[in-house]
């Protein structure tokens, strides 16, 4: 008798069913997404991986309810998605924080329904969590790129969503900051039990973070393969298992091992 695996025990959080997206521009129509089917379980960390311009942001925008699909449907907790919802927060690829608000103002942006005391407590908590103590009154223009990105993550977490959609949130950061941010995100994910859908075009990043990596093909984007990353955190990125999974994805995408 084998016990039920960790993953099958959890219920489906998000279901993407037969989603297509066609953009029409200057009379020409471009097929960006083709028959996307995807299921994500509660508490899972899933990376969407694919070449630049393939339609990852488009898919994430559909899942988040910002853009309607041309056909198909997205369900979250069994309910069809009809628009954005504060229970699932989108972290943008760039320039997502509000430049006219301070760090505190940004983190408190979504907390307008809370009594002032509770709001202040939450702001203080998340300022500390993302390491922005001392910058409470600073404006985004006075922050570095990494700090701005952390600020946006804090703004998202502050409303206590059960899902996070992150669109290449660390893409514009230097490699050291990017590594730090990844372990921060993993720490938060494990502590707060969120379901995360994370878009990236960085293979290493996806293998370091995800429970499963969804590999997308170039346009029109289809799901080419789903790779289960069965390595517990913290992951040893020089272990044979890690290297094997990583190289498998490299091959899947058709990239040689040598530069």
């Amino acid at each position: 008798m084998t016990p039920p695996s960790r993953t099958t025990a959890r219920e489906t959080k998000l279901r993407v069913q037969g989603v297509n997206k066609v953009f029409t521009r200057d009379g020409k129509s471009v097929n960006v997404l083709e028959d996307i089917d995807l299921e994500i379980r509660d508490g899972e960390f899933v990376c969407l991986l694919g070449p630049s311009g393939c339609g990852k942001s488009t898919l994430l925008n559909i899942v988040a309810g910002f853009t309607p699909p041309t056909s198909g449907q997205v369900y979250i907790d069994g309910e069809p998605v009809t628009g954005p919802d504060p229970r699932r927060i989108f972290v943008f690829q760039e320039r997502g924080v509000f430049p006219w608000l301070t760090v505190e103002g940004n983190i408190g942006f979504g907390l307008f329904r809370l009594p002032p005391k509770e709001k202040a407590r939450r702001i203080a908590h998340y300022v500390k969590l993302v390491g922005l103590s001392g910058f409470e009154q600073a404006y985004p223009a006075e922050l570095s790129g990494g700090m701005k990105q952390r600020l946006e993550v804090a703004r998202a977490l502050a409303v206590n969503p059960d899902m996070l959609f992150l669109d290449e949130p660390f893409g514009a950061l230097d490699s050291i900051t990017r590594l730090l941010m990844r372990s921060e995100l993993l720490r938060i994910w494990e502590a707060e039990k969120k379901t995360i859908l994370f878009v990236t075009h960085d293979i290493e990043e996806s293998v370091q973070l995800a429970d499963r990596v969804v590999v997308m093909s170039a346009r029109p984007a289809k799901i080419q393969r789903v790779v289960e990353i069965d390595i517990p955190h913290p992951r040893d990125i020089s272990s044979p298992r890690y290297l094997k999974l990583r190289d498998g994805i490299f091959e899947e995408i058709g990239l040689a091992h040598k530069v």
């Binding site: 988040a64 910002f66 628009g83 954005p84 919802d85 504060p86 927060i89 989108f90 943008f92 760039e94 320039r95 997502g96 509000f98 942006f109 979504g110 409303v159």
Partner: peptide, 9 residues
């Protein structure tokens, strides 16, 4: 992105 963030919250 700012309008979308507003709607999102």
């Amino acid at each position: 992105t700012h309008l979308n963030a507003g709607r999102n919250f």
